[in-house]
Structure formats: C-alpha cells, structure tokens
C-alpha cells in the first residue's frame, strides 16, 4: 500500500514538474514566437529624473536580435546586434562598430535596470533553470525557478506569477543566493497578437532602491512576420541605422 502511495506521489510530482516545464515553455514562446518585431517606449526614472527612449527591436529565436534606437534625436540610429553571446554596437555619430567587451556586458544598459547580459541571455530561463509549481490561485500559477546544477547564472532563484489563461507573467522576482530579493519585473496590459499573448507594459525595479525604475511600453508587436536575415549580420548595424 505504502509503495503505491509513493509511486503515485512520484508520478504526480513528475506530472507537476512537467506542467511547470510546459508553462515556462509557453511563456517563453509568447515572448518571442518564431520571430518578433517590437516598437517600444522605454522610460527610465531615477532620482527624480526621467528619460524616454524609443526603439525598434527585431529578434529571431533565442540567439539573434537587432535593436535600433529611434528617439531621442540625439541617439537616433544607434544600433545593437547580438548573435549568440556576442554583442556589437554601432554609433552613427562616430561611424564605428564596436564590439562590447565581456566586462561591459553586465553593465546597466543605457542607464536602465536591464543589463546587456539580460538582453543576450533571455534564453537561459528555459535552459538553465528547473521550474517547480509552488502555488496555484485560480488561473495564476506561481512557479519557482531554481538554477540547474552548475548553470552559469547568478540568481539564487526566480519566481514567476503566470496567468495560465494567457501564459504571461504579471510579476517576476529575482533573488540572490541567500534568498534575498534583488529586483523584480512587473507586467500588465496583456494583448493578443495573432496566436500569442504579450503584456504591453513592463516595469523593472531593484528591490532596494526606491524611486528608481525602468518602464517599457510596447507600442507595436508583430509575430512571425518575415524578418530579413539581413538584420542579423554585422553589416546591418550600419545599414539599418538610417
């Protein structure tokens, strides 16, 4: 009898585990489709100052992405390309393509709370973490992601609160190794685009610095359109800068 309970328990655990995997996978798909084009507004608020940027972003799968800044005029035409784990930047003012060295990758991206590394390593949520469902409340499932053994990630764990009707998260919390909160993402205003759901309002805030956050509003989102492969080459940096 006891044995059967154990077997069922293991089976259940497996099922739950699988369900968590499934949810994370769907969440991830919602974020990127086969490919995705976004036009977004970014607002960085820090110590009473506010800065707005607008940009267009093209990405394909997990390894290729191209970003172009279109506002403010001063920064217009700056482009970024990331392929695998490398990143380049083109600045029209100086007409140079510069490879971002590893040391700069973990720096704050354009004064936001997002690091270059975040942008490059999006994929690792699926690859590097083991998901587990820890709470259900109606359609909202709380999933805890713990790094797989030897996964090269710095977070101790991440919790995601995912609405299973749309497979979008409304809050992600990032913890350090000791289990202390380091920063969180908040997502709102979910829209349906084609077969996908995507929150059009994102906000990132470090847990211990008040009055400082980064907001993003997606103005346009298009999935699975034909994005030319040309965007993901180094020559695109200059070509698509205009």
């Amino acid at each position: 009898m006891g044995k059967i309970v154990v077997v069922i328990f293991i089976f259940m655990a497996h099922l739950i585990g699988d369900e968590a995997h499934e949810i994370i996978k769907k969440l991830d798909e919602n974020f990127r489709g086969k490919n995705i084009y976004m036009k977004l507004n970014m607002k960085i608020v820090s110590m009473g100052h506010e800065r707005v940027m607008k940009m267009q972003s093209y990405s394909q799968g997990t390894k290729k992405s191209f970003v172009k800044i279109i506002y403010p005029p001063k920064d217009e035409g700056i482009t970024f390309l990331s392929l695998d784990r490398e990143m380049w930047q083109y600045v029209p003012k100086i007409e140079r393509i510069i490879k971002i060295p590893p040391s700069m990758m973990l720096q704050k991206w354009m004064g936001s709370d997002i690091t270059n590394d975040d942008m490059v390593k999006q994929s690792s949520i699926v690859e590097d973490y083991e998901p587990k469902i820890i709470k259900r409340e109606g359609s909202v499932v709380t999933i805890e992601l713990t790094p797989k053994e030897n996964a090269p990630v710095v977070w101790g764990k991440i919790t995601l609160n995912i609405d299973t009707t749309t497979y979008t998260s409304h809050k992600d919390i990032f913890y350090d190794e000791e289990g202390k909160e380091v920063r969180y993402f908040i997502y709102k205003d979910v829209k349906k685009v084609g077969n996908y759901y995507i929150p059009t309002y994102w906000m990132v805030q470090s847990s211990d610095t008040e009055g400082r956050y980064t907001e993003m509003i997606l103005e346009e989102v298009e999935y699975d359109t034909k994005i030319s492969e040309e965007y993901f080459t180094k020559s695109a940096l200059k070509r698509f800068s205009k």
Binding site: M53, P72, V91, I98, M110
Partner: peptide, 16 residues
C-alpha cells in the same frame, strides 16, 4: 579614438 560611454543622465555618449 572612439569614445563610448553613458552621459550623466544615462543617455548615450559617443564621439571621436
């Protein structure tokens, strides 16, 4: 020599 950094308001700063 190209200089790239972030300005005091966090925006991009680059120049030759």
């Amino acid at each position: 020599v190209a200089f790239i950094g972030s300005a005091s308001d966090g925006s991009f700063a680059a120049d030759m």
